[in-house]
């Protein structure tokens, strides 16, 4: 079972939400909607910053503890990149609806309890960022996220980025990294058994996926778009935004 290698995204796709995006990558499709800054309930109100509320909804079944865990991971990540201090006593609400998750043809899944796991985290994060951009909320930086699996192979280990469900099952360890556009590591989640060296290798590989190793910080503005689409997620975000802006301002 193969997955799309090219990420795809559509911005401002729902009419009612302040900002929205749909993002498909690695067999996952997620629709994101952002409302904000809006009125906050008294008990959630923060006097000096905006409260960020993340809701993750699985395609089938009701959300459980796994979804709550993902929500808390995303919430703490997004809080770092949104300029929350600009909107005290408000709420920024991010709803992430999973619509397609890769299906395993070789097993019949149980559905009553939805089973979202770490592998979906990069797709959720990307969607959230695109939706926030679409809602024109001021951000400190954008972010790019990727998943890696370390597979045992002929006594050696191999790092695979954006692994399939099968590969994750066979892997020894699984890692999710997210970087801001300033090249800072903002999220690292790992499961399985691995050594410090392996983690370092994975980190380097992830950085390579999110950013081309040759460029840093500000020079990426000059880069050629076509060359890196697909391999470079930061660039993907950028080109998606550029396309959207270009089509929106077409009349000018």
């Amino acid at each position: 079972m193969t997955v799309t290698t090219e990420p795809e995204a559509l911005l401002s796709y729902l009419q009612k939400a302040d900002g929205s995006a749909t993002f498909s990558y690695a067999g996952y499709t997620v629709i994101g909607a952002v409302n904000g800054p809006i009125e906050v309930q008294r008990r959630d109100e923060l006097p000096e910053e905006a409260a960020v509320d993340v809701i993750v909804r699985p395609a089938a079944g009701v959300g459980g503890t796994r979804e709550r865990h993902l929500e808390s991971l995303i919430q703490s990540t997004l809080r770092q990149i949104i300029l929350v201090n600009n909107f005290p006593r408000t709420l920024i609400q991010v709803v992430l609806q999973v619509t397609v998750a890769p299906e395993n043809d070789y097993a019949n899944a149980k559905v009553a309890q939805a089973n979202l796991n770490l592998p979906i985290l990069p797709a959720l994060l990307q969607t959230a960022v695109l939706s926030l951009l679409s809602a024109a909320l001021p951000l400190r930086a954008t972010l790019a996220s990727t998943a890696l699996a370390i597979l045992p192979e002929h006594g050696d280990r191999r790092i695979i980025s954006s692994p399939t469900g099968r590969q994750i099952e066979q892997s020894q360890s699984f890692h999710v990294f997210a970087f801001t556009s300033h090249d800072e590591l903002i999220l690292a989640e790992s499961e399985g058994s691995f050594s410090m060296k392996e983690w370092d290798d994975a980190l380097a590989a992830a950085q390579g996926t999110c950013y081309p190793p040759t460029t840093t910080g500000d020079t990426d503005v000059l880069m050629d778009d076509d060359k890196l689409v697909g391999s470079d997620l930061k660039h993907f975000t950028r080109s998606t935004m550029e396309q959207k802006t270009a089509s929106d301002l077409y009349w000018k």
Partner: peptide
Amino acid sequence: ELSPMASP
């Protein structure tokens, strides 16, 4: 289940 996606 109507989510805040449809309306806050």
